[in-house]
Simulated scan of single mutants.
Amino acid sequence: MTIVAAIQLNSTADLAENLAAARHWQGAAAAGGAKLAALPENFAFMGKRETDKLALAESDGGGPIQDFLAQTARELGISVIAGTVPVAVPSDDSRVYAASLVYSAAGRRIARYDKIHLFDVDVDRGDRIEHYRESNTIAAGEPAYVVVPTAVGALGLSVCYDLRFPELFRALAQRGAEMLCIPAAFTQQTGEAHWEPLLRARAIENQCFVLAPGQCGTHATGRQTWGHSMIIDPWGVVLGERLDDTPGVVLADLDFDRLRQVRASLPALKHRRL
């Protein structure tokens, strides 16, 4: 059995409260047999203002959030994907990197990916327009294709808005990814319309498992996030989904023989001509 977990959270402006919630659900994942657990974007903090995260910026490799992740992975004996952690930008205290970090079951950090595509959009909710400008407080990572071997399989990293850029995921698949992790804090409006179709498309077109842990509910800013954390197989089948708008954990058993069967019987990745 190769059980993995996607954890859904409703993160607040209280760091300690969020870390306690993350620890609780990681423990539930481990108790359910998971070898790897993925946390959503902004799992440790969603403040009242976008600038609030700057006060929590950590140096690369150390800080309360990163220490928590390493310790939790080690204590539970599971690999952990930390959706995003605010990592300081050298010589720029007005922005942070949204860094997705991966820890082995021994508590050692084995990968870092900084979110490339930033959510600078205006979302029409019908009664009002919601304005999002991540670039005001987040620095875009340098374009990178991060694929890391884990105890479960080869893992390709991305974050939230990256989901809308299929070329990133094709490059990850070309570099050997068998699983794609897409931690997110999708808005309710865009999530209802696009979350599942885009996730299933990324799974199908790249013949990979997809782990998609998300934020849910209403946050300190009044922002509403979609939730619906899910795990999808390489044929586009949803193996598990968190349907209600509350924190929780989604578990699924990944069948890598099935992945190889899909790729062998429909070898689209080998048929590419562009």
Rank of each mutant, 00 (worst) to 15 (best):
T2F: 07
T2K: 13
A13T: 12
A16F: 03
A16D: 13
L19R: 02
R23V: 07
W25I: 02
A30W: 08
A31V: 06
K35D: 08
A38N: 05
P40A: 07
E41P: 00
A44K: 03
E50T: 12
K53Q: 11
L54F: 03
A55Y: 02
L56I: 00
G62R: 14
I65Q: 06
D67W: 03
R74E: 07
G77L: 01
G77Y: 01
V80S: 02
G83K: 00
P86A: 12
V87P: 02
V87N: 01
V89S: 01
P90W: 09
Y97S: 02
Y103G: 09
R108V: 10
A111M: 06
R112H: 06
D124Y: 12
R125A: 15
G126I: 07
T137D: 03
I138A: 00
I138C: 00
A151W: 00
S158P: 08
C160R: 02
L168C: 02
L172S: 07
Q174F: 14
A177W: 10
C181S: 15
Q189T: 15
T190Q: 13
A193G: 05
A201I: 10
R202Y: 06
G217R: 03
H219R: 08
R223F: 13
R223A: 15
R223G: 09
M230H: 01
G236E: 09
V238N: 02
V238I: 15
D245C: 10
D245K: 15
P247I: 13
L251H: 13
L251Y: 07
D253P: 09
A268G: 15
